[in-house]
Simulated scan of single mutants.
Amino acid sequence: MRSTLRKTVLTLTALAAGFGAAAATPAQAAQAADAGCVTGAKLVPTCGVLWGGAAGGFTSAPRDQALKAWEKASGRTASIFHQYHKGNEVFPTKAEIAMTNDPASPRVLLENWKIAYGTTWAAVAKGQQDKRIDAFAARAKAYGKKFFLVLNHEPENDVVARAGSGMEAKDFAAMYRHTILRLRGQGVTNVVNVMAYMGNEKWMAQSWWSNLYPGDDVVDWVGLDSYVSVEKGYYHFGDFSALLDRKAKGGSLGFYDWAVSKHGTKPLMIAEWGAYHRVGKKADKSAVYNSVLAQLAKRPAIKAIVHFDTKHDDQGDRDISIDSTPASLASFKKLAANPIFNVKLG
């Protein structure tokens, strides 16, 4: 009993230390892993924060191999493997399933699905893509394991704010509701859905922005895709707090504060995040990576962070990789090693 109590105290100490800036020692990591941080019915960790990644973006590299390379570089296996699909694409794929069946490195899928690809949100909401939804439902049930599902991440970019376009914000909410309710009606119980917004203050200022939300009854997690620049004076310069706190002008709440005040029962996932500089600039990203733990300590609603890694994104001249400089990689490895991310998939 005394030995067990001592181990528990050591474990809790290690977890508390996990919010500090220092990297975890192997002993601390082992103690934290023994603390019992596990995921529950909706994949919400009982303690700690889920660690995830999406690698090889905007390249032809197989995503599973890209993630493994990213994991090796960062020093930690991702608990969440983020993938992207659209329309009638068949997923989970064999490669994705294999990544979640690895007994030495268990992972959970985060599947991004643009279900309305080739049509409109309004059409999906009216049942015109029910065959597509039902085919996915059958695959999800056959897969069996719990996984995250994002429906049309960053919908703000796709809104056509014109009556009758089929792509208004209210159409997105209707599409989302219809899809989730249809999946439930088909007996799908292993999908944990995420409503993933785009971290850009200009969208929060739109009159239609609040109309995107489909309702707490069909949302399991609230997600955010957001990035920061490490070049002072450049677009969205800042640290980890900056990507969480963007807000429209006029005294509105920052994104994190909005999420916890409006949807306080929902866990928050940073479904995409990263630090960037212009390609070839080789600016140090350490300040961003070094700020993450302190911000997580202040923001208990955040239960998962998923890094998006690419040398050149589709938005233009941005390098969002963790290894663009040796100092950046060293700081990211220090972050990845922290025991706060030692969460066992239940």
Rank of each mutant, 00 (worst) to 15 (best):
T119Q: 06
I133S: 05
A142I: 10
I133D: 00
A142V: 01
P103L: 15
L109E: 10
A95N: 07
E89Y: 01
V124R: 01
A140E: 08
W121K: 05
Y143R: 00
P92M: 12
F91H: 14
N88K: 04
T100I: 04
R107P: 01
T119L: 11
G118S: 11
V124G: 01
S105D: 05
S105K: 12
R139K: 11
S105F: 06
S105W: 07
D102N: 12
E89S: 11
I115D: 09
K86P: 03
I133Y: 05
R107Q: 11
A123G: 06
A142Y: 04
S105R: 13
A138W: 11
A135K: 15
T120V: 09
E111M: 15
A123T: 11
A116K: 09
D130N: 05
I115L: 14
E96Q: 13
Y143L: 00
A95Y: 02
T93K: 06
A95L: 01
P92W: 12
A138N: 11
R107G: 08
A135W: 06
L110T: 06
Y143F: 08
E111N: 09
K94R: 13
I115H: 05
Q128D: 12
G118R: 07
F91N: 04
R107K: 12
I97H: 00
I115K: 08
W121S: 13
E96W: 05
A116Q: 15
F136C: 10
A140N: 03
F91I: 02
T93Q: 02
K114P: 00
A116C: 14
W113A: 08
A137V: 02
W121Y: 10
P92D: 07
S105C: 09
A125C: 11
G87F: 03
K86A: 15
R139V: 04
A125W: 09
R107C: 05
V90P: 03
A95E: 13
P106F: 15
A123R: 03
A142F: 09
N112S: 15
F91P: 00
T120D: 04
Y117M: 11
A122I: 03
R107D: 03
Y117I: 14
K126L: 07
E96M: 13
P103N: 09
R139Q: 13
T93G: 00
T119P: 04
I97N: 03
K141Q: 02
